[in-house]
Design a protein around this nucleic acid. Structure first.
Length: 840
DNA sequence: GAGCACTGC
């Protein structure tokens, strides 16, 4: 509003205080389809093959006998047969009948995530068997009971091993939607009203996978339906033993009962007879805690391993131990592992899963089979900038309008929309303004443009808009997205990609004990992934706003998450699963020694590890809660009679761990004023934690019918609030189960709202200090806050209710370096409390 | 005065 921007006539464009030369761009003749002279073909992009080209693969599938007929829903046979993977089904079966590990590389669209488990579940090795195993006798605290000689006492048991295939996914939506699709292909749909699944209260996300994230705004609040209790009761169980000669009759029986299931947090559908189970990586890690040998499974398929989450790295370590170990815990029955990746950089993975992965010996990979399958990707022409661009916004504007004026709006494959990858919200909003204002200056004969921002903090509706086909004729859609469009969501209709070559990445700095969030150059593999987004529906073009030389200097792959984050959680995960020497645990990438040492010290401070470095009772209790170690420590402290504030701590932790901030940021000034009137009522002088508590308590004491309005007035993210309620209920259940709470609290309707007293607030903050004593700062004479640990200056983040306020000392739960060294989720404390919290 | 993206019996 304040600044009037307009396009000048001629070859120069003035927008705000920016002057952009348009020389060489935006030629008035849209039809000259000459490729820009700067165009280079990118040799590093995987040679995209056309639709029906199945002959140029590394291994010729023709040398094998014809594939077996497909089973399941015949109406889907044609689609499945057309998948590149179809020709490989016998080959995959044959490999796994001999070897235990298969590494499978398949581009997007090869069908690996849906087909591989269907190829395998009827194999002989995939049947459940009864075996005798020796198990260590444990006392009630989970410690080994020793015999007189000092050896661990064992006893013989008969157990079931195998029968189920698990497929891990990094994200919930992927697990649930894949399960739905495979169930349909198998003819045993998942959504049969949950009959026979044994679960009470199916969540509202029953038909998951709609939209980028579950939940939707304005839905009615019904507390009971939000939560699935008593999860995991029906996990394939021991209700049936399939003997060795499983025959067709039995297969039919399985189908009637449900062949496919999934298990993700808050949502489990594992019908009896499930043989194919889609799970999140975190869920399988959690199962490992109960069952270190994964006895329920004949095979684990690790999908999307190239994403290299911390969870998948840990999981790979445990799987390697099972595969290369003595298998005594499984009665000698091997566990088959199929590792699936979308990129061909798998040397490391192959070596890792061999029993000897030392790089010195050249023998690695012998036990590990490797198969590469081409995807179904249309060709994408890659165009680099001839020389480095000084201003990314300017380059983006020029490129977008070059595409828009020179390329057709659609072709026989459909719409030809533009997807731009930018680093963050700020950049996206600036680009949107530029594009929209410039579009107004275009000749009326040129098609219109409609710009859609797409980033995680946007409301569901706004995100949804970017996925809808554009209604107006003669208009091109331009989506300006963050990394969210690289892996998490797929925007349909995209045939042009504009890639700025950067992304914001979080990186943990062990020396500073804090993380940074800064824009950095992406990796080659990430650039290729972005390029691929242009070729999903037809041949496309990718414009990189950097030079071919710059591309050549990019790192091959992204730094795996385990090298970028605090390994506190990873170390506790290992310790809780019996890994005493975490430094020798097999990992594809090993964090710096300093990072591991810091984590060990931190865990010791939290009381999770004893002086001998072994996990303590406190540590074992902590891992039972699906929150990070410091939060788990807070829960234990809050349950201590000294602090006695468990329910309050749960309310706060639920709000904080529900995803992004439940308080959405308000964009316009007018909205902000209106929202602040309501938000002020929630705010407390003690700071953000007590404000969250107050918000949760006000929220749950609001009648269901009014909760939508409550959220709207305060700009509370409904999706995150719903998630917070789920977490709250889960944490309450676990507290009861772990005897930290005598009984499940009364329903919220029976509790009247009462503001937290200052005394209670003090107890709550002291309980939080038990987990966060290291994250405190004291007001210095120069009015800055200086951290107690490390003596760094921190500023209170503007999103905090204590922003601009000076108090004696603060505790903060998050610590991020962006523009400045920022403290987030801040509370006012007394300096004396810090030492008190560190004392036992 | 500012916010890449995921995720957990």
């Amino acid at each position: 509003m304040s600044r009037k921007r307009k396009a000048e006539s001629g070859e120069v464009l003035k927008i705000g205080n920016k002057t952009i030369s348009l020389e060489g761009y935006l030629t008035k003749k849209p039809k000259t389809a000459s490729t820009p002279s700067t165009s280079t073909s990118d040799n590093n992009t995987p040679a995209p093959s056309t639709e029906n080209d199945t002959t140029t693969t590394a291994t010729d599938p023709k040398e094998f006998k014809p594939s077996r007929p497909l089973t399941g829903d015949p109406s889907l046979f044609a689609t499945r047969r057309a998948l590149p993977l179809y020709l490989y089904q016998d080959r995959i079966r044959s490999i796994l009948s001999k070897k235990d590990v298969l590494v499978l590389v398949g581009e997007t669209g090869s069908g690996k995530s849906t087909q591989v488990p269907q190829f395998l579940y009827q194999e002989r090795w995939c049947q459940r068997r009864r075996v005798k195993v020796k198990t260590k006798v444990l006392d009630k605290d989970g410690n080994e009971v020793l015999e007189e000689g000092g050896k661990a006492k064992t006893r013989e048991e008969t157990v079931n091993v195998g029968g189920v295939i698990a497929i891990t996914q990094p994200r919930r939506v992927a697990a649930t939607t894949l399960a739905g699709r495979v169930a349909k292909e198998c003819g045993t749909p998942l959504d049969t009203s949950g009959r026979g699944t044994g679960f009470k209260g199916r969540g509202p996300k029953g038909k998951d996978g709609k939209g980028p994230k579950g939940g939707k705004e304005g839905e009615e609040w019904d507390e009971e339906k939000d939560v699935v209790e008593e999860m995991g009761k029906n996990n394939g169980g021991d209700e049936e033993v399939i003997e060795e000669n499983g025959n067709e009759k039995k297969d039919r029986k399985d189908q009637e009962k449900g062949l496919v299931g999934y298990s993700v947090r808050f949502d489990h559908r594992v019908p009896p007879g499930t043989k194919i189970k889609y799970v999140t990586e975190g869920m399988l890690l959690q199962e490992l805690l109960r069952d270190p040998h994964l006895r329920q499974y004949s095979a684990i398929i690790v999908d999307e391993i190239h994403e290299r989450s911390v969870d998948v790295d840990l999981l790979s370590g445990f799987l390697k131990q099972i595969v290369t170990g003595d298998k005594a815990g499984r009665g000698g029955i091997p566990l088959k592992v199929v590792v699936m990746s979308a990129t061909a950089q798998v040397e490391r993975i192959k070596k890792f899963f061999s029993s000897d992965d030392s790089l010195k010996k050249g023998t690695s990979g012998e036990e590990v089979e490797y198969l590469e399958i081409e995807g179904r990707q249309f060709p994408v022409e890659v165009i680099h900038e001839p020389k480095p661009v000084p201003d990314i916004q300017e380059a983006l504007l020029k490129t977008v309008f070059k595409i828009h004026t020179q390329e057709p709006l659609s072709d026989k494959h459909g719409k030809k929309d533009i997807l731009c990858f930018l680093t963050g919200q700020e950049e996206i909003e600036a680009a949107q303004r530029l594009i929209e204002e410039f579009a107004e200056t275009l000749d009326p004969k040129v098609p219109k443009v409609k710009v859609f921002p797409l980033f995680g903090q946007l409301s569901m509706e706004a995100q949804h808009e970017a996925f809808q086909p554009i209604k107006h004729p003669f208009t091109r859609k331009i989506v300006l997205a963050t990394n969210i469009a690289e892996t998490s969501v797929t925007v349909p209709g995209v045939r042009y990609v504009v890639d700025c070559g950067k992304a914001k990445v979080k990186q943990y700095r062990p020396r500073l004990g804090m993380e940074s969030l800064l824009a950095k150059p992406i990796s080659k593999s990430s650039a290729i992934q972005r390029t691929g987004r242009a070729g999903r529906e037809g041949p496309g073009k990718c414009f990189r706003l950097y030079t071919a030389d710059t591309f050549a200097t990019l790192p091959k792959t992204d730094l795996p998450e385990i090298l970028r984050t605090d390994v506190l959680g990873a170390v506790l995960t290992m310790k809780a699963r019996g890994i005493d020497d975490v430094l020798s645990f097999p990992l594809m990438d090993r964090p710096e020694l300093e990072a591991v040492e810091n984590a060990l010290v931190h865990l010791h401070v939290l009381g999770a590890l004893g002086d001998d470095g072994r996990i303590t009772d406190t540590g074992r209790k902590m891992v039972l809660f699906p929150v990070t170690a410091p939060y788990a420590r807070v829960l234990l402290a809050a349950a201590d009679p000294r602090y006695d504030c468990l329910l309050e701590a749960i309310d706060i932790i639920s709000c904080i761990t529900a995803g992004d901030d439940i308080f959405m940021q308000v964009r316009s000034e007018e909205d902000k004023e209106a929202v602040d009137v309501y938000r002020k009522e929630l705010q407390r002088r003690e700071g953000d934690l007590i404000t969250y508590l107050n918000t949760m308590q006000r929220f749950v004491s609001t009648p269901s019918a009014d909760r939508g309005t409550f959220c709207k007035q305060r700009r509370i993210n409904v999706r995150n609030m719903r998630q917070a309620l789920n977490i709250r209920k889960q944490l309450r259940s676990l507290s009861v189960k772990n005897k930290m709470l005598a009984e499940f609290p009364a329903p919220d309707a029976e509790v009247t709202y009462q503001p937290v007293s200052p005394e209670t607030a003090e107890r709550i903050l002291k309980a939080f200090l038990k987990g966060f004593a290291m994250k405190t700062a004291v007001l210095a004479p120069d009015a800055s806050y200086v951290t107690a640990h490390g003596k760094h200056v921190v500023a209170i983040h503007p999103s905090s209710s204590l922003h601009g306020v000076k108090r004696e000392a603060i505790m903060f739960l998050e610590h991020v370096y962006t523009q400045k060294n920022y403290a987030k989720k801040v509370s006012a404390i007394q300096a004396g409390w810090i030492a008190e919290a560190l004392a036992v």
